[in-house]
């Protein structure tokens, strides 16, 4: 059976987020497993520019452009209405939405509008024997729950940095169509009036490909300068354990763990973090983990691929120096 899959992609400052290409990678895989079908994208923007061509190269067969001046910023009701309209337009059996701050807000709205089931924070999804299943971590990553869906569309909110993107293929073409969206008073009551950047040039911890993270062992907020320097040379995001956030050394937006953010970078460097189970919940799906800790018995070493036992105030400066030598 053929299925059509719709991907809601995120655009910030005119740029397509990588999560959109990850969604397209998954969509193509599901269509293939189902034995055919179409991959469509719904684009909610105030200006489309080159985005449709990039989406075609990333795997889209069809791009539905919901173009409105209100879509310069995230417009929760409007985006939900656009995704619902796009679902009807392509008779989507599956809708894929990134589990970003925007996507986590959007997916439940779409679920309620369509009366369709949504699974949050999926890390696996597949289509077999006519049935879609998705797997997601629960109980702080202590277990994985596989769910199935009754009724269509099935909404998959997918964790970022987990699903593979396709190599960009600029020879691919997509049908590009305008998607009219009717916005009533209800959709426009809530207004996003501005966006403020606080992380500077540094990528957010949930999006970064490399994360360097500090815990209680950092001893003071000022010592995070050592991690700032490391993050600078690696192009990394900076994370923190709950202990470091509760001590006021870092803002809670940096917190990695069960009551913070869940991250899946290719490299996670844990500095002075003992590895409480709630912290491991947030980072155990990193591809490679490095731990630097003076306590050789610290639980973080049980999950680390590479460990250095030692005083981070000696190890980090040496690491910064080694990296600057090599660059």
């Amino acid at each position: 059976m053929a299925i059509n899959v719709l991907v809601a992609v995120e655009v910030r400052d005119g740029e397509l987020k990588k999560s959109g290409r990850e969604g397209l990678g998954l969509a193509r895989k599901l269509v293939e497993q189902a034995g055919g079908g179409e991959v469509a994208v719904v684009l909610t923007v105030d200006s489309a520019a080159e985005l449709p061509a990039r989406l075609a190269a990333a795997g889209a067969d069809k791009v539905l452009v919901a173009l409105r001046s209100e879509f310069a910023n995230y417009c929760p009701g409007g985006f939900a209405a656009a995704v619902a309209a796009a679902c009807a337009n392509v008779s989507a059996a599956v809708v894929i939405i990134p589990a970003s701050a925007l996507g986590k807000d959007l997916a439940p709205r779409v679920s309620a509008r369509l009366g369709a089931p949504a699974a949050s924070d999926c890390i696996e999804a597949s289509f077999a024997d006519g049935k879609l299943t998705a797997t997601r971590p629960a109980y702080g990553g202590k277990v994985r729950v596989t769910v199935s869906f009754a009724g269509e569309p099935a909404i998959l909110c997918i964790r970022t940095n987990v699903f593979d993107t396709l190599p960009a293929d600029s020879s691919r073409n997509a049908v590009v169509q305008d998607l009219p969206v009717e916005l009533g008073e209800a959709e426009l009551k809530l207004k996003i009036t501005g966006v403020e950047r606080t992380s500077g040039e540094r990528p957010d911890v949930s999006e970064a490909d490399i994360v360097v993270s500090g815990g209680r062992g950092m001893q003071d907020g000022e010592n995070f300068a050592l991690l700032e320097q490391l993050a600078q040379s690696l192009g990394a995001g900076i994370g923190a354990s709950r202990a470091a956030v509760d001590a006021g050394w870092r803002s809670h937006g940096d917190q990695v763990g069960q009551t913070g953010k869940f991250v899946s970078p290719s490299l996670y460097v844990a500095c002075g973090i003992s590895g409480a189970v709630q912290h491991l919940a947030g980072m155990a799906s990193a591809k490679v983990i490095v731990a630097i800790n003076k306590d050789a018995e610290a639980p973080i070493f049980k999950v680390a691929n590479y460990g250095v036992v030692g005083d981070l105030f000696e190890v980090l400066p040496a690491l910064n120096e080694e990296l600057s030598k090599q660059s």
Binding site: V147, F149, A150, N305, V308
Partner: peptide, 18 residues
């Protein structure tokens, strides 16, 4: 509409090297 099919433990990370 969402049904739990299976609950399992995540693959264990093996201890790496010091």
């Amino acid at each position: 509409l969402l049904t739990v099919e299976k609950i399992s433990y995540p693959p264990e990370r093996s201890r790496g090297m010091i």
